[in-house]
């Protein structure tokens, strides 16, 4: 009983700030302006297939790139001296202390045709390259902004992998590839899953990155939702409908991910 009582603050928090808003999203998504039940908004989703497709595609690429960058780093981090780990973690976290908008804005200045990177390349006779207003720039923005969310869960899982386990595998004759495939990756799976979720979900719903780095013509779902709510039409119902579809997509992808669920998966978030 007591332990239940202790959970009360969060349960109340969740009820008020998660369940109720979620209910409201569904309410708006399934009604029209006058509050009558209607699925018209949902039926219009076919129009936005390309936007959905692009959002998911770019988010998948960003997640994979994050994983490739973060995985070796997290492993190296977890094998370092404790005080060095602290410094390195600080460096990972440091960009996150800055405002998200400023960080993205800074990339805009870097990537412009007359921007910093092209100027530097110009000195060695290269370019100028067209970097901004491309899908690559959007992916770059996502990776840059969300890679700490991949590093941190991976790191926290990997610090728990005891060196003696790796040594045992080596003693039993595993080469380094086998150690990686049979010991480290299986043991760090919960971290991989958490990292993927934490990068994929914000990437798929971002809007400011695509607007600033994508030049406004690479519209993502986030932009579309924002346009419904802060645009001239103030169409909360359509915005909510799009959100529902997005949630269902994420839910589906997460459900598929959970199919990889194994016994050793405890410790994973979601």
């Amino acid at each position: 009983m007591k332990s239940k009582l202790a959970a009360a603050p969060y349960l109340i928090w969740m009820a008020v700030f998660t369940i109720v808003p979620l209910g409201l999203v569904f309410y708006y998504g399934l009604t029209d302006q006058d509050g009558n039940f209607s699925i018209d908004n949902l039926s219009r989703m076919g129009m936005y297939t390309n936007i959905f497709f692009r959002s998911i595609w770019l988010a998948v690429i960003a997640t994979v790139v994050c994983l490739i960058i973060a995985y070796p780093l997290a492993f190296i981090l977890s094998r370092m001296d404790t005080h060095k780990q602290g410094t390195m973690l600080l460096l990972v976290m440091l960009p996150m202390w800055m405002n998200f908008l400023l960080r993205t804005y800074a990339w805009m200045t870097l990537l412009e045709t007359n921007g910093v990177i092209n100027k530097i390349l110009g000195f060695v006779g290269l370019g100028p390259f067209e970097m901004i207003n491309t899908q690559g720039a959007i992916v770059l923005g996502m990776v840059y902004n969300y890679v700490p969310f991949m590093i941190l869960p991976l790191y926290s899982v990997m610090t728990k992998i005891d060196n003696s386990v790796i040594e045992a595998a080596q003693d039993l004759g595993s080469n380094s590839r086998q150690v990686l495939m049979k010991v480290i990756i299986p043991l760090s799976k919960p971290g991989i899953m958490t990292g993927i979720t934490m990068v994929f979900v914000p990437s798929v719903s971002t809007f400011i990155i695509s607007r600033m780095l994508g030049g406004g013509s690479n519209m993502l779902i986030g932009d579309l939702i924002e346009q419904q709510i802060l645009g001239t039409s103030y169409n909360l119902n359509l915005g909510a409908s799009i959100s529902i579809v997005l949630m269902i997509f994420i839910f589906m992808i997460m459900a598929v991910m959970n199919q990889f669920d194994d016994e050793e998966m405890e410790g994973m978030i979601i």
């Binding site: 129009m47 936005y48 297939t49 390309n50 936007i51 497709f53 406004g216 013509s217 519209m219 579309l224 346009q227 419904q228 645009g231 001239t232 039409s233 103030y234 169409n235």
Partner: peptide, 21 residues
């Protein structure tokens, strides 16, 4: 306003309509 928003979305997604998407 809503019609204009719809047209706007059409403008934004025009040109890269991939029928294979």
């Amino acid at each position: 306003n809503r019609y204009m928003d719809q047209l706007w979305t059409e403008i934004k997604i025009s040109g890269d309509q991939n029928k294979w998407a």
